[in-house]
């Protein structure tokens, strides 16, 4: 290091300091990861190679890849749960993100009452729990529920929804759309971060609304849209509460999803090893999807800072 010529030393030490600052900045997180999260995560990875019941670790036996082998080749529930989870994820992410985007665009203005509308649209994402799921069971009632009643007004005979093998999963997707308020908030925050002068400049240049939307709104919002997309994907793959409360995976296996499977195996069947293996397969699935999204984002996500994902 001593041999570096003085003119370059300054830039090098700047760079070095930046690197030190980086570690200081992420230091708290890194310590927390080592102390609180990393251990349990690694532990669950180890458990996935054992037949641990979840109670007495001393009784656990190393079984190698047996859990994974059984899941992949010998457990049809795994494939059913995976298929259902993908279905749910696809539906709720696409419609959820699109819906939240449209509502955020519409609500991103100071119309009279827009504050109230924001609160209303945000509300269902925080009002949850058992009693609310009873409301949903009632809304989905094939005979007297509001959904089928509305459909009947336009001459459509609604399905049996949660009581039907074909419609139970779409019903859960529909319910998930009710919680798009959280995504809406993030997108609103993103929209508000776009500097107004950009639009004013565009207008002076005589740009059309559509080109403003395409050339300013979408690129400036893309980092946030990307966040919403990734987070929604992760959350949708981990859907659990609605299934546990409303359908318990049924009818049949129509709404049987991976995390419900994980929960049951771990705490109802006392097969923590098997459950951990299942969780790590889920991890792998989401990890690959996230990597694909990261990779894909290079084509459409634009960072004002010029960084890449």
């Amino acid at each position: 290091m001593q041999t570096i010529i003085p003119s370059k030393r300054r830039s090098f030490s700047l760079k070095q300091r930046e690197e030190i600052d980086f570690y200081l900045a992420i230091g708290l997180w890194l310590i927390g990861f080592i102390l609180f999260t990393g251990g349990p995560i690694l532990a669950s990875l180890l458990f996935s190679f054992t037949d641990w019941t979840g109670v007495n670790i001393s009784k656990a036996k190393w079984v190698g890849l047996a859990n994974f082998h059984q899941l992949l080749f010998d457990d049809k529930l795994f494939w059913i749960a995976t298929r259902n989870t993908f279905y749910y994820s696809f539906g709720s992410v696409i419609f959820g993100t699109l819906g939240a985007f449209i509502i955020a665009l519409l609500l991103n203005q100071k119309l009279p009452g827009s504050t109230l509308l924001r609160v209303i649209y945000y509300l269902p994402s925080i009002a949850s729990g058992v009693a609310i799921s009873i409301l949903w069971l009632w809304l989905f009632n094939p005979q007297s529920g509001l959904i089928n009643y509305t459909l009947s007004l336009v001459g459509i005979k609604g399905p049996m929804w949660l009581g039907s093998q074909q419609w139970a999963l779409p019903a859960l997707v529909l319910k998930s759309l009710w919680g798009i308020g959280a995504n809406m908030v993030i997108l609103l925050a993103g929209l508000q971060g776009i500097p107004v002068p950009l639009y004013e400049a565009a207008r002076i240049d005589g740009a059309s609304k559509w080109s403003e939307f395409r050339n300013i709104t979408v690129p400036m919002l893309s980092p946030v849209l990307f966040f919403v997309l990734v987070i929604s994907t992760i959350a949708s793959f981990q859907i659990f509460t609605d299934v546990r409360v409303m359908t318990q995976g049924g009818p049949g296996t129509a709404t049987y999803v991976i995390v419900y499977f994980i929960y049951q195996t771990a705490f109802e069947y006392l097969k923590m090893g098997y459950s951990s293996a299942l969780a790590w397969l889920l991890f792998l699935i989401i990890f690959i999807l996230t990597l694909l999204q990261l990779w894909g984002s290079r084509r459409w996500v634009y960072y004002e800072s010029g960084e890449r994902t």
Partner: peptide, 12 residues
């Protein structure tokens, strides 16, 4: 964020 907490809750 990717690992469901059902399997990390006991070790934690």
């Amino acid at each position: 964020m990717l690992l469901p907490n059902e399997v990390t809750i006991i070790p934690q």
